[in-house]
């Protein structure tokens, strides 16, 4: 994708229209976008609104505008400011779901491998790998200070001597640190089929091709075992 001097991607009008139509065709669209009083209740209750120039009211208004150009302006960065807490959906007097609209737009950004989506998903590559290749989400060896600053001042201590600490847990822990629990090969194969069917592998290929290759190697190994 090409970018202008402000870092905004330059794309043909056709693509903008396609994206707009993809969002409108989503099966959740009618439920999420009803009408809008432009009242600002959603934004008043929205946590990121206090910190960024971000407003779920604007998201809903732009979506309702039917103007592909306006929707495109949100695709690069805007939609990623949302916490997906759905406070907006809980308090909107019209029963819209601005957070739901954002989910639809984000999914489009991910499916189409937009730069913004790649950037946002980068820190999750380890989680994606564990999840799709091994059926685990977090494993002990992922607990590292760099990745979990929000775990507080003891994260440094928690991330050392993992093998010993695992032994101290009074239940079967496989005595390994690269997995949280064991997933049987049969189960793994079923999981891979589900990921295939649901298009999960395709999405990973779009947003992170090198991660996709690593995952596919593991998948091939397990499938041929």
């Amino acid at each position: 994708m090409e970018y202008d001097e402000n870092g905004v991607s330059i794309v043909p009008a056709e693509l903008k229209k396609e994206i707009f139509e993809e969002a409108r065709k989503d099966f959740r669209y009618e439920e999420y976008v009803r009408g809008c009083l432009n009242c600002g209740v959603c934004t008043g209750g929205c946590p990121p609104h206090r910190f960024f120039d971000f407003s779920p009211r604007i998201v809903l208004q732009k979506m309702k505008s039917k103007d592909p150009e306006l929707i495109w302006t949100m695709m690069d960065e805007y939609v990623w400011a949302c916490f997906q807490c759905f406070t907006c959906a809980m308090i909107c007097p019209f029963l819209n779901s601005p957070g739901g609209v954002i989910a639809i737009l984000r999914e489009i950004a991910v499916r189409r491998g937009f730069e913004s989506a790649k950037k946002v998903l980068k820190p999750y590559s380890r989680v994606l790998l564990k999840l799709t290749a091994y059926g685990n989400q977090l494993s002990p060896d992922m607990i590292q200070p760099d990745f979990f600053p929000d775990w507080g001042p003891h994260i440094g201590y928690a991330s050392t001597d993992l093998a010993v600490k695992r032994k101290a847990i009074p239940m079967p822990t496989l005595q390994v640190t690269n997995l949280a629990w064991d997933v049987a090969p049969e189960t793994m194969k079923e999981l891979y089929d589900i990921f295939d069917e649901a298009g999960v592998f395709k999405i990973i290929e779009a947003v992170d091709p090198s991660l996709y290759e690593i995952i596919q190697d593991i998948v091939d190994d397990v499938r041929s075992s």
């Binding site: 009242c39 600002g40 209740v41 959603c42 934004t43 008043g44 209750g45 609104h49 407003s55 007097p93």
Partner: peptide, 18 residues
């Protein structure tokens, strides 16, 4: 439109909104 009313310092009530 006000999204929430909370209590504030010095015995005030705070209106929060956009």
């Amino acid at each position: 439109r006000i999204a929430e009313i909370t209590s504030g310092p010095d015995n005030t009530v705070v209106c929060k909104g956009e």
